[in-house]
Simulated assay, not measured.
Amino acid sequence: MAEADREQWGYVPFEHVGPLRFGMSEAEAVVAMEAAGFTCEKETRQGHITGKVTCRRPTARGMEPDVTAYFVDHLDAKGLTCLTVDGRGGPQVTWEGVKLIGRVPSQLTAEFLACVEERDLGFGISAQGDVFPVDQGFIPATQRAGDAVVTRAMFANPEGWAFTVGDCIPEEAWDVR
């Protein structure tokens, strides 16, 4: 998808990604996404992740949803805990001036390294080998887009039920290729 055609979303770590706030209910997430022009489907789940909402723009043609939101109902933690943004057709999400979605992975890595050095942040490397700034509530990943590979991102807030951002991300979210 062309950069100019993507919705533009901001990201505040552990607070919100675009119109979606961590901790909001499934119903609130559906209302927010439908107001932004997406169509949504809800799915009840078993285990720690008790709900899933997939959202697509009406013009979306890909197999993957543009945005997938995961919900938890565990002890003191309730509501949106994780969301993923598709690299081919999802909204552009910007963190600290860095565009995270639909990028060439090596270019995003170079920007991350410059950004973490400038801000004196640490960085980590995901199980798939993607570089990310630690303690910022997201992990980038990659997926195929025809003959190319582009970046996507997984955002999470572990507060109240998990130890790390990675613990909040369901296995199926890691498996998007």
Rank of each mutant, 00 (worst) to 15 (best):
M1N: 11
M1F: 11
E7M: 13
V12C: 06
P13E: 09
G18C: 10
R21Y: 07
F22A: 09
S25N: 07
E26H: 02
E28C: 00
V30F: 01
E34W: 00
G37H: 04
T39K: 04
C40W: 01
E43P: 00
K52P: 00
T54H: 01
T54E: 12
T68Q: 14
Y70V: 08
Y70K: 09
H74F: 15
V85W: 02
D86M: 07
G87Q: 05
P91K: 07
Q92G: 08
Q92D: 14
L100E: 03
R103A: 05
R103V: 02
L108M: 05
A110F: 00
R119T: 01
D120A: 11
A127N: 13
Q128P: 00
V134M: 07
D135A: 13
I139W: 01
I139L: 14
A141E: 05
R144Y: 08
D147G: 12
D147N: 12
A148I: 01
V150I: 13
V150R: 04
T151M: 05
A153V: 12
M154I: 13
A156K: 08
P158A: 11
P158N: 10
G160Y: 11
G160I: 11
W161S: 15
A162H: 11
G166C: 07
I169G: 03
E172F: 13
E172H: 13
D175V: 06
